[in-house]
Computed example of a mutant assay.
Amino acid sequence: MEALLRGTLAADESGCVHAATAGDAVSLVWPLGYTVKGNAKSFEVLDAEQNVVARSGAPLNIGGGGAGKVPDNWAERDCAKDRLWLIGDVSEQ
């Protein structure tokens, strides 16, 4: 969980939030309690305490690491496409 992914948050036509990178889109696996507020064009990601941790379109550094499969407790299983990234922390670039 010490790797770094750089990209911007975007939503696809199904409303699934992913990281747009220089390569392929990356499906993000957020910690339990995180939610998305807004719509596909403009949204914010909130942590379990309802603090904004990321916004759509903002360049981000996303700490964490790759995953081989979707965790059983992940609520957005239908959004798992492309590569998976387990999020450790997020900061703006």
Rank of each mutant, 00 (worst) to 15 (best):
L4R: 14
L5S: 09
L5P: 08
R6I: 00
R6E: 11
G7Y: 06
G7I: 03
G7D: 05
G7P: 04
A10S: 09
A11Y: 04
S14D: 12
G15F: 02
G15P: 07
C16R: 14
C16Q: 10
V17C: 04
H18V: 01
A19G: 08
A20D: 12
T21A: 09
T21G: 10
A22E: 12
D24V: 08
A25S: 14
A25Q: 10
V26F: 05
V26R: 12
L28C: 01
L28E: 01
L28I: 07
V29L: 14
V29S: 10
P31G: 04
P31F: 04
P31C: 06
P31A: 05
L32K: 13
G33C: 09
G33R: 13
Y34N: 12
T35M: 09
N39I: 00
K41F: 09
E44K: 15
E44H: 12
V45R: 13
V45G: 02
L46I: 00
L46T: 03
A48W: 05
Q50E: 08
V53G: 02
A54C: 01
R55C: 04
S56H: 11
G57V: 00
P59H: 05
L60T: 02
N61W: 10
I62M: 13
G63T: 06
G64K: 11
G65M: 09
G65H: 10
K69L: 03
V70I: 13
P71H: 06
D72V: 12
W74M: 02
A75R: 15
E76S: 13
K81M: 00
D82N: 14
R83F: 01
R83W: 00
R83N: 04
R83E: 05
W85C: 10
